[in-house]
Nucleic acid binder design. Structure first.
Lengths: 249, 249
DNA sequence: CGTAGTGTTGAGTCAAGTCAATGGTTGTGG
DNA sequence: CCACAACCATTGACTTGACTCAACACTACG
């Protein structure tokens, strides 16, 4: 009789995308305390202004980070896929500067924040992996500033679609020819800094050009290379190779 | 006879804006090897695609981070003021995803990357301070995504002007009534995702409304509270209070 | 079925961009 | 010390990509 799989093994896989872990590091992560929570779409993991308590790992489902302007306009500043930790960004910050919300129904493994803080303080290997993961997230934020600041709507949308595909692929979640984009056009608009109407037209235009095919929210790329070029997409900023320079011997 | 001041004391001051350091931590930072370099405006600290070698600290002068689209459009994704480390974002990433360049003539204290990596691995206190500093930079990136994605040009420009003021102030560099903005309108346009012409008009409009006064590149705020409101600016995302939750006892 | 949330489309508007010229500053070398 | 050159800031006239408003269609779910 085998025990049920530890949901934190997904977190290990995510950390190992960017850094090497020793057997002890892996064990230490898997030994973290956690509780499972199944939540509906739209559930907050943390709200701007709150004090972080837990650190959720997305076991299944999707999530996003958002900020609001004083006028109530929303900007989605990050998307998250299964296996990704949602609250590392607030691991050592005492008041949340943004909110994190599920995009779909999701299973969360919630680790007490203090337990993770303790592990990060005590294990150099885990600390390194967490640090690299945060550096990579920062790199993605920078790319988003560029995307939203300087790319016209067509490329902007295409770029986000490519990033999503590349990250799903890296986490071993890519389906053969595309993926289900788990968001409404309004949410997509808020990640792109556009209006929903314009997103709709831009999607149509990508489809007319043969860069994507759509069936409901399922997106397919008939010609990935052409799509990549149209999106001005390069994987570099995702830093998908494990970063070796700072690894412990 | 006193020895010349250690330029790394500025880095200590910066780290202590966000985290507490013990005496030993401070000493360890000050004991890092460094070499001084005085460079002209426009000098690269690192270029996108390169492997990071050193970690520069801005002792005097200003700097920025930039990315380019395939078409050559530029987006400035961060600004840096004296005392700030410029290459922490690449401390454990092996290929640079963006470039870092000085905005003005500047004095850099360059720490060998491996020395800083070693210190971060060996000192829990310094590692914590570096991690918090990176988390705060990530928070600023998120705010920039919001700023560029969702705020109209007037607020967008005002917001960056406010952030610059608040950060200068936190680092103890604020002059009584304003500051010299060390950049051309073209560079400002590239940080805002606007065109230089529109930045010019937007500056004039802020001035006409009495929100700012200008003399060359010197910016003054006649009524900080009104400016803050017009900019939709809140300091929260700068996390200026030292973050205590994860501090070593 | 009916209702609420999405997605789609058309027509008209506007914020920001483009193009192009002029004016001001700064630094440098004769 | 002046004159030129290079760079930067400013302004006007015109264009356009994206937004707004509004209607209608589709889908899922109770």
């Amino acid at each position: 009789m085998t025990s049920p799989p530890n949901p934190l093994s997904l977190l290990v896989r995510k950390l190992e995308i960017h850094a090497r872990l020793t057997d002890d590091d892996r064990k230490a992560v898997l030994a973290l305390p956690w509780t499972m929570r199944t939540v509906d779409a739209g559930t907050y993991s943390i709200r701007e202004g709150d004090r972080p308590e837990g650190c959720a790992v997305l076991v299944s489902g999707f999530a996003f980070r958002q900020k609001l302007t004083g006028d109530g306009a929303r900007q989605i500043v990050a998307l998250h896929i299964p296996g990704e930790p949602l609250d590392l960004q607030h691991l050592f910050l005492d008041v949340a500067d943004h909110s994190v919300q599920t995009l779909t129904r999701a299973d969360l493994a919630v680790i007490p924040r203090v337990a993770l803080q303790k592990l990060v303080r005590e294990s150099a290997g885990v600390a390194h992996a967490v640090l690299v993961t945060i550096l990579v997230e920062a790199s993605i934020f920078r790319e988003w500033v560029l995307n939203v600041g300087r790319r016209p709507s067509r490329e902007r949308l295409a770029h986000v679609l490519c990033e999503f595909a590349a990250r799903l692929d890296a986490q071993g979640l890519a389906e053969e020819y595309g993926y289900e984009l788990p968001m409404t056009q309004e949410q997509l608009a808020d990640t792109l800094g556009l209006t929903p109407v314009h997103v709709n037209r831009t999607l149509k235009s990508l489809e007319t050009e043969g860069l994507i095919k759509r069936d409901r929210r399922f997106i397919r790329f008939p010609d990935w290379e052409r799509m990549r070029r149209a999106a001005d997409f390069s994987e570099r900023y995702l830093h998908l190779q494990p970063q070796l320079s700072g690894s412990p011997a």
